[in-house]
Design a binder for these strands. Structure first.
Lengths: 343, 343
DNA sequence: CTTGTTATGTTGAGCGGTTTACTGCACAAT
DNA sequence: ATTGTGCAGTAAACCGCTCAACATAACAAG
């Protein structure tokens, strides 16, 4: 059997100091002299002692843990989008001394109100929620609640929920201006409609097409499907072209949809960008490697993760009360978009 | 400011029972009569009370948390392989009432000995380590240690470390038998060499080719690269064919490598399976959708996650002392492999 | 009537830390 | 000599829950 686990008391006894001195040493409290610190640390090292985190959490009323909730997509982990955000969160959380408690927003997770339980039981000091779609109304329990809650790369119009997100309206503007500026006047949009950010993007984009000073564009749109996948983009492109064969540009709500659309176009003998321009959103790695390179709007999701973490810590520390950050995006022009052919 | 957080004591006072009765109710202890349980629960519900998990953990000496460590690949979350395992772990852990603490095996993680700290500080009751490659020697601290540690889909030859893994030797056998049985005698292997499981697979496969009763096969191999990626497979196929143009079959250590190889073959006018058979390992979704469908060895990684979780709990409960499970695999024949053409 | 047994609650001693207020003490200023 | 001012360390009151040991009552059996 294991020998009894050491406690702070054992360290105190062996080093000849009081229990509280050891505690202060372990917390790097300036009150303690270097000499004392050293003697205590020698014993700590000797036993490879680490203070019990439950005891610590109980006494200090902080778990030093952040809950991260991701969507319940089957292929969720194969989603580069999430990976970027999570790695940003992990990186920042770790450097701040916080751990990450992972949850997946399954039906069970929602039904058992795990999202409340986690915070009420103080298992986590705050929750970073990446999993939201337009149906996550249960999240409204966090409006005006004492719990620290933050939506990551999402928002709920009309609800007072904190968020840090890329500015989808700005992205829509950049994209529209790029395509319209190239002279396109018949544009097909492959939209994502199961998130509020996706809807925002769609509405903003269509709006701009309608109001373009140099002449309104005809813009039609179809749904790219729940998964925002390459396959969805493939099917959507087919639908768009069937509906309006004269399209000169296709805008997709993300790069995967766009790449799927490009594939359909290639399979159907339409040259990109000669016959038709294609554009995506996100700037995933693959965007640079398809042929032609995909023009897109760059979304720095890693940065979103980092920022979300920063904000969450400010919320926890009480430095801020609420948060609604929109991070800037930028246009990346590659080969898939070109000036409309003069006819 | 927030009103004071309720504690078990408040619930006891208001429900008229003792503190411990409330505790027993919350833990579903059979000692308590239904009537009492009901009256206590009424108060619990009324305040939406959840017991403080730090206090619970301190008193019960269990964190009800499992540490899961994943590799520090840039595109780690885009790896379907991991996703399957993690979702298996999450599913099972959750149903057993355990939470998942996520860590990424960064240089910092290793350097700061976070893997020890996590367990020593009792932040987690056990560690499921998915992140191992052949260089993770630091893990030997877990040999004969009191800490509950388990490698997931990996093992270290010569080290006493618990593991639950797919049986890579068996997979190699199934694959070799399939290809050799189809008459192939010049086989190229695209191997993964940065994991012990990959090496095991390679050695076993080559061995079998050499010793095939119906006549030894000539088998050559190249490294598929650190990432086991499509791109790596593409390059590896080129190398193999350059080295031995007469190959009639290519075996890849995973499906992504195989699909990359198929792509190279297509780009270089070799028909699969007419000119050359191609085979992978894992049976990822995509394997069924490429053209021709990829013959492969099915690895149920979701199940590996579930099993790993089961075993970990047995380790924690002391029901078992150690664990070295190999899960069975199976052959999946699709269109990419065929009997060798009679010449 | 006594003793045993079962069912249901309660008491209280921890679990292993954090943190506030307090104690000395050395040294400088008055 | 008196008072003030830091500095370094300590005592002790929690933090909120678990669980083994004990208490009590009701009822059956001898």
């Amino acid at each position: 059997m294991t020998t009894k686990r050491k406690t702070i008391k054992d360290i105190a006894k062996e080093s000849g100091f009081s229990l509280s001195t050891v505690s202060l040493v372990l917390n790097n409290h300036p009150r303690i002299s270097p000499a004392t610190r050293e003697r205590v640390m020698a014993v700590v090292k000797k036993y490879n002692f680490f203070p019990n985190s439950a005891a610590r959490g109980l006494a200090s009323k902080s778990s030093r843990t952040l809950s991260v909730v991701i969507p319940n997509l089957t292929r969720v982990f194969s989603d580069i989008y999430l990976g970027e955000i999570i790695s940003g969160i992990y990186e920042r959380a770790t450097s701040l001394g916080y751990k990450i408690l992972l949850d997946i927003a399954t039906a069970q997770f929602v039904k058992s109100q795990e999202y409340t339980k986690l915070l009420a039981s103080r298992r986590a000091d705050g929750m970073l929620f990446i999993a939201s779609d337009i149906h996550a109304n249960y999240l409204e329990v966090f409006e005006d609640s004492p719990f620290k809650f933050l939506l990551v790369n999402h928002f709920f119009p009309g609800k007072k929920l904190n968020y840090v997100s890329v500015d989808y309206a700005a992205s829509a503007r950049l994209a529209a201006e790029h395509l319209l500026g190239l002279g396109h006047r018949k544009i097909g949009l492959i939209a994502g409609t199961n998130t509020h950010t996706g809807l925002k993007f769609r509405d903003e984009f269509l709006q701009l097409c309608k109001q373009w000073p140099a002449g309104a564009a005809k813009a039609i749109w179809v749904d790219g499907g729940e998964e925002w996948s390459q396959r969805g983009g493939y099917a959507a492109a087919a639908k768009l072209i069937a509906q309006e064969p004269g399209l000169t540009a296709i805008m997709a709500a993300n790069d995967r949809l766009a790449i799927g659309a490009m594939r359909w176009l290639a399979d159907n003998k339409r040259a990109v960008p000669e016959d038709i321009s294609v554009m995506g959103v996100d700037d995933i790695q693959l965007a640079a490697f398809v042929n032609p390179g995909l023009s897109t709007i760059r979304h720095d999701l890693h940065q979103v993760g980092i920022e979300a973490c920063n904000r969450m810590l400010q919320l926890i520390k009480g430095e801020i009360e609420e948060c609604s950050d929109l991070l800037p995006t930028s246009l990346v022009v590659r080969g898939s978009t070109a000036r409309m052919r003069g006819k």
